[in-house]
C-alpha cells in the first residue's frame, strides 16, 4: 500500500483504493464490496483500519449496508465520486500546476498553450 502515497494514513489509502475501483467500474452498482476482513487479508493490514476505510465510503453514501450481508455499491456512487474528485483532487492538481508555473515564470497564455498541445496530441493518438 505504501507505494500509492506513503504519507497518507492507511485507512485513507484503503478508501482511495475502493473509490478508484468504483470510478473505473471494477466494482459495479449493487455489487458487494470487500468486507473489512477481506481487505485486511488482501493488504496485510489491521481489520479495524480496513473497517475505518469502509466507514468513509459508508458516510459518503457511496455504499449501503444490507444487514448480515455486507456492503454494496450505491447506485449514484460513480457520479458522486466524479463530482468529489472534480472538487478536490482536480483542484489540488491545478493548484500544484499553478505553483510550478509561477516558479518557472510561465504565464497563463503559455500554460493554456501547453494544455492545448497535450490535449491535441492525445486526441491524435486515439484516432
Amino acid at each position: 500500500m505504501h507505494d500509492v502515497d506513503g504519507e497518507k494514513p492507511i485507512y485513507i489509502q484503503i478508501a482511495d483504493w475502493l473509490e478508484n475501483a468504483i470510478i473505473d467500474g471494477t466494482l459495479q452498482v449493487d455489487e458487494k464490496v470487500y468486507s473489512q476482513y477481506q481487505l485486511a487479508e488482501l493488504f496485510t493490514i489491521n481489520p479495524a483500519t480496513a473497517g475505518k476505510g469502509l466507514t468513509i465510503l459508508l458516510e459518503a453514501e457511496l455504499v449501503y449496508k444490507k444487514r448480515g450481508l455486507g456492503m454494496f455499491v450505491a447506485p449514484d456512487a460513480q457520479e458522486k465520486l466524479r463530482a468529489k474528485r472534480k472538487e478536490q483532487t482536480l483542484l489540488q492538481i491545478v493548484q500544484d500546476l499553478l505553483n510550478e508555473a509561477s516558479l518557472l515564470n510561465i504565464g497563463t497564455d503559455e500554460l493554456n498553450q501547453i494544455i492545448e498541445k497535450e490535449r491535441k496530441q492525445r486526441k491524435g493518438d486515439q484516432t
Partner: peptide, 27 residues
C-alpha cells in the same frame, strides 16, 4: 509493524506519551 496495528502506545521518558489509534497520531 504499523500495518497490522490498530492502536499505538508510545512510552517516552518512563511515561505514556500517547495512546490511541495510529491514524489519529498520524493526522
Amino acid at each position: 509493524m504499523k500495518d497490522v496495528l490498530e492502536d499505538l502506545l508510545v512510552i517516552h521518558r518512563k511515561r505514556i506519551r500517547y495512546h490511541g489509534s495510529i491514524s489519529d497520531l498520524q493526522e
